[in-house]
Write a protein that binds this DNA or RNA. Sequence first.
RNA 1: GCGCCACUAGCUCAGCUGGUAGAGCAUCCGACUCUUAAUCGGCAGGUCCACGGUUCGAUCCCGUGGUGGCGCACCA
Length: 499
Amino acid sequence: MSCMEVIFMDSQSELWRVRLDKLDLFRSKGVEPYADHYARTHMAQDIIENFGELEGQGVKVAGRIMSKRDQGKVIFVHIQDFSGRIQIYIRRDDVGSERFDLISTLDVGDFVGVDGSVFRTKRGEISVHARQVDILSKAMRPLPEKFHGLTNVEMRYRQRYVDLIVNPDVRSVFVTRSKIIRAMREFLENKGFLEVETPTLHTVAGGAAARPFITHHNTLDMDLYLRIALELYLKRLIVGGFEKVYEIGRNFRNEGISIKHNPEFTMMELYQAYANFRDIMELTENMIAYIVEKVHGTLDISYQGEVLHFATPWSRLQMLDGILEYSGVDFRNITDDEEARSAARAQGIHIGEDATRGQIINEFFEEFVEPKLIQPTFVIGHPVEISPLAKRNAQNPAYTDRFEAFAYGRELGNAFSELNDPIDQRKRFEAQMAEREKGDDEAHMMDEDFLRALEYGLPPTGGLGIGIDRLVMLLTDSASIRDVILFPTMRPRDDQASE
RNA sequence: GCGCCACUAGCUCAGCUGGUAGAGCAUCCGACUCUUAAUCGGCAGGUCCACGGUUCGAUCCCGUGGUGGCGCACCA
């Protein structure tokens, strides 16, 4: 099907034809409606903030027309640039009749450059009185209605560019997202961490329990996985002699989509040689507090109607204590798998036939404790079965030196003293392989090269992972992860599918 | 994967018991030289998500499918 046929079949064809005619009109007058450049001197917000000095002065502003009030021989428009909006006052007498006729065909959505002088209207609005109005880019499609804007959630995600034009709050979420990441980098750089980049294409998908995406390299004729975590490559770097590294990067997990899950999401992972999980815990609360303060100017923020207090130190909770408190079940008195399974059945917790005590503890935790952890809290004392990459606790080797950070009942971060005993690590992988044999396709894969790296010696190391998207959700009071990802994963629609 | 809900003009939404659709804004034409959800007058704009079924007749009822939202499951 040719491009033109597509255009004529478009339900907007009437609107489209009118815009085409307008393009022709400009060109017939020798005006190119898609300009090359505009030498702007001021942003909209600058003019508003500095009206005192700028009143009567000449300025050149540029932006998208967001509203238009045509009074025949006078036109008012608001233009929007990245800083905000400013009103433009255009008089037929000032710009010339022929030019004015062209200007009057401009639509909401068009980009213009305006050369004029700053003044205040009779009604009191700071505006630019135009001497010259240049079209910079003609919009062929109409913007959503000015009052209600674009509210259809599906369209907002699919056509985020339109969402961003008409919904200023959306833009500000992503500006905040950028600030959060910048503050995080700032904090880590100040602590002497080095930012690195590791592969996205993995031959072994490791570092987390998750189903990976599979892709294929043609020349090598081999399948590759999109990474599910940054962990294993970053630890190789500690083996290689880097002592403080971090990476902020995209992970991919081939799992369900929800208000908290997008198939691709951003993680920050860091590793620090000679540190243990206690050191990392302190670093974590300090880092998050630094970011919260930097972004909000306070350590108390409101999320979905709850006030969260990020002042350090955050509370610490032993996983088993939490379970006892919220479910009444004391796993210190439950010593084997069978006892744990009957405790689960008694509480109506759904578990596999051969679930281990450690897995059941985790189920109890998620069921009874997690939703209660509204204020920032570190949970410690994770069973070894659910922590295949964490060092065992020296006093009680059934548990690991690990913590997870929670806020608003959601995991914010995960950290541990890294397992640096290559022989124990091999056993843990083997246990994971056994899980995999039993059909758990999210169990860890064996990673021989990672084991080899450990066999060269990994110093004692503390590591941390933080889900950036969830952190951004918290700090922007966003209910859905899709509200903090510019282009969330969506099924293509017929009318948008590529051919 | 399961359940509930939604899908009507470019956008935001009405639409009664089943009689093939309306409004506001935007567009288009006209009026208006300080308006700001500008105002006033007029015209036009529809695959009612798709396909079946029931019916004399379906936007409406039924079924299947699609897309999305939410919940559950999954996701440590």
